Amino acid sequence: MKCAIVTGGSRGIGSAVCIKLASAKKYHILINYTSNEAAANDTLQKVREAGATGEILKFDVSNYEETQSVLNAWQDKNPDAVVEVIINNAGITRDGLFMWMQPEDWSSVINTSLNGFFNVTNFFIQKMLRNKYGRIINMVSVSGLKGTAGQTNYSAAKGAVIGATKALAQEVAKRKITVNAVAPGFIKTDMTQEFDENELKQIIPVNRFGEAEEVADLVAFLASDKAGYITGEVININGGIYS
Protein backbone atom coordinates (compact mmCIF):
# COMPACT_ATOMS: atom_id res chain seq x y z
CA MET A 1 0.00 0.00 0.00
CA LYS A 2 1.48 3.32 -1.10
CA CYS A 3 0.61 6.20 1.19
CA ALA A 4 0.81 9.98 1.44
CA ILE A 5 0.66 11.72 4.81
CA VAL A 6 -0.58 15.29 5.19
CA THR A 7 -0.04 16.94 8.58
CA GLY A 8 -2.67 19.46 9.57
CA GLY A 9 -4.80 17.83 6.91
CA SER A 10 -8.25 18.48 8.32
CA ARG A 11 -8.78 22.08 7.18
CA GLY A 12 -7.66 24.82 4.81
CA ILE A 13 -4.68 24.12 2.56
CA GLY A 14 -4.08 20.73 4.21
CA SER A 15 -7.58 19.53 3.43
CA ALA A 16 -7.37 20.80 -0.16
CA VAL A 17 -4.06 18.92 -0.57
CA CYS A 18 -5.58 15.67 0.75
CA ILE A 19 -8.47 15.90 -1.72
CA LYS A 20 -6.18 16.81 -4.64
CA LEU A 21 -3.79 13.92 -3.91
CA ALA A 22 -6.80 11.61 -3.62
CA SER A 23 -7.98 12.57 -7.11
CA ALA A 24 -4.82 11.01 -8.59
CA LYS A 25 -5.97 7.67 -7.06
CA LYS A 26 -2.35 6.67 -6.45
CA TYR A 27 -2.14 6.90 -2.67
CA HIS A 28 -3.89 5.91 0.52
CA ILE A 29 -4.21 9.30 2.25
CA LEU A 30 -3.21 9.68 5.91
CA ILE A 31 -4.93 12.77 7.30
CA ASN A 32 -3.25 14.05 10.46
CA TYR A 33 -5.16 16.36 12.78
CA THR A 34 -4.79 17.59 16.35
CA SER A 35 -8.18 18.74 17.61
CA ASN A 36 -10.93 19.09 15.00
CA GLU A 37 -12.14 15.54 14.46
CA ALA A 38 -15.29 16.63 12.61
CA ALA A 39 -13.22 18.53 10.02
CA ALA A 40 -10.83 15.57 9.68
CA ASN A 41 -13.75 13.20 9.03
CA ASP A 42 -15.22 15.65 6.52
CA THR A 43 -11.90 15.69 4.64
CA LEU A 44 -11.76 11.88 4.76
CA GLN A 45 -15.25 11.73 3.25
CA LYS A 46 -14.14 14.01 0.40
CA VAL A 47 -11.01 11.88 -0.13
CA ARG A 48 -13.25 8.84 -0.57
CA GLU A 49 -15.57 10.75 -2.90
CA ALA A 50 -12.50 11.60 -5.00
CA GLY A 51 -11.88 7.88 -5.44
CA ALA A 52 -9.10 7.18 -2.96
CA THR A 53 -8.85 5.39 0.39
CA GLY A 54 -7.72 7.15 3.54
CA GLU A 55 -7.77 7.33 7.32
CA ILE A 56 -7.34 9.92 10.03
CA LEU A 57 -4.46 9.95 12.53
CA LYS A 58 -4.75 12.11 15.62
CA PHE A 59 -1.47 13.40 17.02
CA ASP A 60 0.26 16.69 17.78
CA VAL A 61 3.23 16.95 15.40
CA SER A 62 5.09 19.15 17.89
CA ASN A 63 5.07 16.31 20.45
CA TYR A 64 7.85 13.85 19.61
CA GLU A 65 6.66 11.03 21.88
CA GLU A 66 3.05 11.26 20.73
CA THR A 67 4.06 11.38 17.06
CA GLN A 68 6.31 8.32 17.48
CA SER A 69 3.65 6.42 19.39
CA VAL A 70 0.84 6.99 16.87
CA LEU A 71 3.00 6.41 13.79
CA ASN A 72 4.59 3.27 15.25
CA ALA A 73 1.15 1.87 16.06
CA TRP A 74 -0.02 2.66 12.53
CA GLN A 75 3.10 1.07 10.98
CA ASP A 76 2.71 -2.07 13.13
CA LYS A 77 -0.90 -2.38 11.95
CA ASN A 78 0.13 -1.80 8.32
CA PRO A 79 3.52 -3.57 7.93
CA ASP A 80 3.38 -3.49 4.12
CA ALA A 81 2.48 0.20 3.88
CA VAL A 82 5.07 2.54 2.36
CA VAL A 83 4.81 6.28 2.83
CA GLU A 84 6.09 7.83 -0.40
CA VAL A 85 4.81 11.38 0.10
CA ILE A 86 5.13 13.58 3.19
CA ILE A 87 3.37 16.94 3.22
CA ASN A 88 4.49 18.91 6.29
CA ASN A 89 1.60 21.35 6.41
CA ALA A 90 0.79 21.66 10.13
CA GLY A 91 1.42 25.16 11.41
CA ILE A 92 -0.02 27.68 13.84
CA THR A 93 0.23 31.44 14.27
CA ARG A 94 0.45 33.42 17.49
CA ASP A 95 0.82 36.89 16.05
CA GLY A 96 1.96 39.89 18.05
CA LEU A 97 4.77 42.41 18.31
CA PHE A 98 8.04 40.84 19.41
CA MET A 99 8.44 43.28 22.32
CA TRP A 100 5.30 41.85 23.93
CA MET A 101 5.72 38.24 22.82
CA GLN A 102 5.39 35.59 25.53
CA PRO A 103 7.75 32.58 25.58
CA GLU A 104 4.82 30.23 24.92
CA ASP A 105 3.83 32.21 21.79
CA TRP A 106 7.38 31.85 20.53
CA SER A 107 7.93 28.18 21.35
CA SER A 108 4.53 26.83 20.28
CA VAL A 109 4.86 28.31 16.78
CA ILE A 110 8.46 27.10 16.38
CA ASN A 111 7.60 23.65 17.77
CA THR A 112 4.66 23.07 15.44
CA SER A 113 6.33 24.13 12.18
CA LEU A 114 9.99 23.25 12.75
CA ASN A 115 9.90 20.39 15.26
CA GLY A 116 6.80 19.05 13.51
CA PHE A 117 8.82 18.83 10.30
CA PHE A 118 11.54 16.91 12.16
CA ASN A 119 9.24 14.59 14.12
CA VAL A 120 7.22 13.40 11.12
CA THR A 121 9.91 13.39 8.42
CA ASN A 122 12.52 11.76 10.63
CA PHE A 123 10.11 8.93 11.44
CA PHE A 124 9.74 7.94 7.77
CA ILE A 125 13.08 8.98 6.23
CA GLN A 126 15.03 5.72 6.70
CA LYS A 127 12.29 3.62 5.08
CA MET A 128 12.06 6.18 2.29
CA LEU A 129 15.81 5.93 1.69
CA ARG A 130 15.64 2.13 1.57
CA ASN A 131 12.70 2.38 -0.83
CA LYS A 132 14.75 4.75 -3.06
CA TYR A 133 11.82 7.03 -3.79
CA GLY A 134 10.07 9.87 -2.02
CA ARG A 135 8.50 13.30 -2.16
CA ILE A 136 8.78 15.63 0.83
CA ILE A 137 6.95 18.95 0.56
CA ASN A 138 7.12 21.53 3.33
CA MET A 139 4.51 24.27 3.56
CA VAL A 140 6.29 27.49 4.44
CA SER A 141 5.18 31.07 3.86
CA VAL A 142 6.01 34.40 2.30
CA SER A 143 6.71 35.36 5.95
CA GLY A 144 9.62 32.92 6.03
CA LEU A 145 11.19 34.61 3.01
CA LYS A 146 10.65 38.32 3.49
CA GLY A 147 9.62 38.44 7.16
CA THR A 148 6.32 39.90 8.30
CA ALA A 149 5.93 42.47 11.08
CA GLY A 150 3.93 41.01 13.94
CA GLN A 151 5.02 37.51 12.95
CA THR A 152 8.62 37.28 14.15
CA ASN A 153 7.91 33.82 15.60
CA TYR A 154 6.13 32.54 12.47
CA SER A 155 8.73 34.09 10.16
CA ALA A 156 11.51 32.44 12.20
CA ALA A 157 9.77 29.05 12.13
CA LYS A 158 9.13 29.09 8.39
CA GLY A 159 12.59 30.50 7.61
CA ALA A 160 14.11 27.61 9.55
CA VAL A 161 12.07 25.05 7.61
CA ILE A 162 13.31 26.64 4.36
CA GLY A 163 16.91 26.09 5.50
CA ALA A 164 16.12 22.50 6.49
CA THR A 165 14.46 21.90 3.10
CA LYS A 166 17.57 22.96 1.19
CA ALA A 167 19.93 20.90 3.36
CA LEU A 168 17.88 17.70 3.44
CA ALA A 169 17.34 17.90 -0.33
CA GLN A 170 21.10 17.54 -0.83
CA GLU A 171 21.36 14.59 1.59
CA VAL A 172 18.71 12.41 -0.03
CA ALA A 173 18.74 13.36 -3.73
CA LYS A 174 20.76 10.32 -4.84
CA ARG A 175 17.97 8.06 -3.58
CA LYS A 176 15.37 9.75 -5.82
CA ILE A 177 13.85 11.64 -2.92
CA THR A 178 13.01 15.28 -3.57
CA VAL A 179 12.52 17.88 -0.84
CA ASN A 180 10.82 21.15 -1.70
CA ALA A 181 9.00 23.98 0.03
CA VAL A 182 5.86 25.80 -1.07
CA ALA A 183 5.50 29.38 0.15
CA PRO A 184 1.93 30.69 -0.04
CA GLY A 185 1.01 34.34 0.31
CA PHE A 186 -2.52 35.34 1.32
CA ILE A 187 -4.76 32.30 0.81
CA LYS A 188 -8.45 32.12 1.75
CA THR A 189 -8.44 29.81 4.81
CA ASP A 190 -9.41 29.86 8.49
CA MET A 191 -5.96 31.31 9.20
CA THR A 192 -6.67 34.44 7.13
CA GLN A 193 -10.39 34.90 7.77
CA GLU A 194 -9.74 37.79 10.16
CA PHE A 195 -7.80 39.67 7.48
CA ASP A 196 -9.37 42.51 5.46
CA GLU A 197 -9.12 41.16 1.91
CA ASN A 198 -10.33 44.40 0.31
CA GLU A 199 -7.54 46.34 1.97
CA LEU A 200 -4.79 43.73 1.57
CA LYS A 201 -5.47 42.89 -2.07
CA GLN A 202 -4.21 46.36 -2.99
CA ILE A 203 -0.67 45.16 -2.24
CA ILE A 204 -1.15 41.93 -4.23
CA PRO A 205 -0.39 42.41 -7.95
CA VAL A 206 -3.09 39.93 -9.07
CA ASN A 207 -5.54 41.83 -6.83
CA ARG A 208 -7.04 38.92 -4.87
CA PHE A 209 -6.36 36.27 -2.23
CA GLY A 210 -5.42 32.82 -3.50
CA GLU A 211 -7.56 29.70 -3.16
CA ALA A 212 -6.46 26.65 -1.18
CA GLU A 213 -7.08 24.55 -4.30
CA GLU A 214 -4.49 26.58 -6.23
CA VAL A 215 -1.86 25.73 -3.61
CA ALA A 216 -2.99 22.09 -3.66
CA ASP A 217 -2.46 21.92 -7.44
CA LEU A 218 1.17 23.02 -6.99
CA VAL A 219 1.75 20.57 -4.12
CA ALA A 220 0.26 17.72 -6.16
CA PHE A 221 2.61 18.48 -9.05
CA LEU A 222 5.65 18.47 -6.74
CA ALA A 223 4.41 15.17 -5.26
CA SER A 224 4.16 13.58 -8.71
CA ASP A 225 6.67 11.63 -10.81
CA LYS A 226 6.89 14.63 -13.16
CA ALA A 227 8.75 16.71 -10.55
CA GLY A 228 11.74 14.39 -10.15
CA TYR A 229 14.29 17.02 -11.25
CA ILE A 230 13.02 19.74 -8.89
CA THR A 231 14.55 19.62 -5.42
CA GLY A 232 15.77 22.03 -2.76
CA GLU A 233 13.44 24.69 -4.15
CA VAL A 234 11.14 27.19 -2.49
CA ILE A 235 8.25 27.91 -4.83
CA ASN A 236 6.27 31.06 -4.17
CA ILE A 237 2.53 31.08 -4.78
CA ASN A 238 1.45 34.54 -3.74
CA GLY A 239 -0.02 36.49 -6.64
CA GLY A 240 3.22 38.39 -7.19
CA ILE A 241 3.41 39.96 -3.72
CA TYR A 242 7.03 38.89 -3.33
CA SER A 243 8.73 38.36 -6.65
Results as ranks from 00 to 15, higher is better:
I136W: 07
A183E: 03
G14W: 02
S155V: 02
A220F: 07
T121W: 00
S10R: 08
M1K: 14
E65S: 15
S107N: 14
V161H: 04
C18M: 08
N32A: 07
G239Y: 03
F98N: 05
N236L: 10
V172S: 11
Q193F: 06
R130T: 01
D76V: 14
S69E: 11
L21Q: 12
E194F: 13
A52D: 15
A173G: 13
G134K: 09
D105I: 02
A173F: 09
G210C: 02
E37H: 15
A149P: 10
V120M: 04
T67G: 06
A81K: 03
M99N: 04
M191W: 02
G96C: 06
A183Y: 03
T165P: 05
G54D: 12
N122Q: 15
I19Y: 12
L21E: 08
T189C: 00
A73S: 13
D196T: 02
T112I: 15
I237Y: 14
L71K: 10
K176I: 07
K176S: 12
V219G: 02
L30W: 05
F117R: 01
N131R: 14
Q75D: 05
A16G: 06
I187E: 00
A52V: 15
A90C: 13
G150P: 03
T165S: 01
S243G: 01
N131C: 11
T192M: 01
N180I: 12
V120T: 09
L222N: 04
I29S: 10
G185W: 00
T231V: 05
G116H: 03
S10D: 12
Q102N: 05
A40I: 07
K201Q: 13
K201R: 13
S10Y: 04
I187Q: 00
E171G: 02
S243N: 06
L168H: 01
Y229G: 06
A156F: 00
K46G: 09
D105V: 01
G12V: 06
G12Y: 09
V47H: 15
I5W: 14
R135C: 08
K77M: 07
K26T: 07
E37D: 11
M101E: 06
P103S: 13
L222R: 06
N78Q: 14
N238T: 07
L129F: 05
F98A: 10
